[in-house]
């Protein structure tokens, strides 16, 4: 959702529980496209929003498999390109290569996880959303309900029935 161009209502909450209840109320009332802000990790709110999966897991797996494959191809290829027998071991000797395979598996899983997180969370972002408030990184939870003028009153009414500490209408 691009909240930079949408008008709506911002509600602030003082706890995770009250925010979760508000999300459920809003979704029951037919408001699905919500932006939720939380100062702390929010598994309860993810559940309330119906978000259960993240594609980061797939990217982590792809990174791991890529790293493991590279971790074999690099030492095997290098050893074949410069076939010097050392310590009487075969040119392509798997046991020492397992260390490189393991390290590159870990390395690429980590790098892929980081970039997947950034890409899917749409980071880096130069400007904060207009619906973002400084309090959302301190001690407040926020719900932004994008609503055109026709539905704004209804959004305000539904939010007014929740435990919102404040309501703010953005044009």
């Amino acid at each position: 959702m691009n909240t930079s161009e949408i008008a709506g209502v911002i509600a602030q909450y003082g706890s995770m529980d009250s925010t979760r209840d508000a999300i459920l109320t809003l979704r029951e009332a037919g408001f699905e496209d919500l932006e939720i802000y939380s100062p702390i990790p929010a598994p309860d709110l993810e559940e309330a929003m119906g978000i259960y999966h993240s594609p980061v897991r797939l990217w982590a797996l792809i990174g791991g498999i890529t790293g493991c494959t590279l971790g074999f191809l690099l030492p095997a290829g290098a050893s074949l390109a410069y076939p010097l027998v050392t310590q009487g071991k075969p040119i392509v000797s798997l046991p020492p290569f397992i260390v490189v395979m393991f390290e590159l598996t870990v390395l690429l899983t980590g790098i892929f996880s980081l970039f997947a997180m950034l890409v899917h969370a749409r980071k880096p972002k130069l400007k904060l959303a207009p619906s973002y408030r400084r309090e959302f990184s301190v001690d407040r939870w926020g719900i932004f309900v994008p609503a055109d003028p026709g539905r704004r009153a209804e959004a305000e009414r539904v939010l007014g029935e929740t435990a919102a500490l404040s309501l703010e209408v953005t044009a």
Partner: peptide
């Protein structure tokens, strides 16, 4: 990086953090 703490950010963040801890 323009972090806002949206639930959509946290869901990816928590996954990435878990996998990083795991590896």
């Amino acid at each position: 990086l323009g972090w806002q703490g949206t639930v959509r950010e946290w869901v990816h963040y928590r996954r990435a953090y878990l996998y990083l801890a795991g590896i």
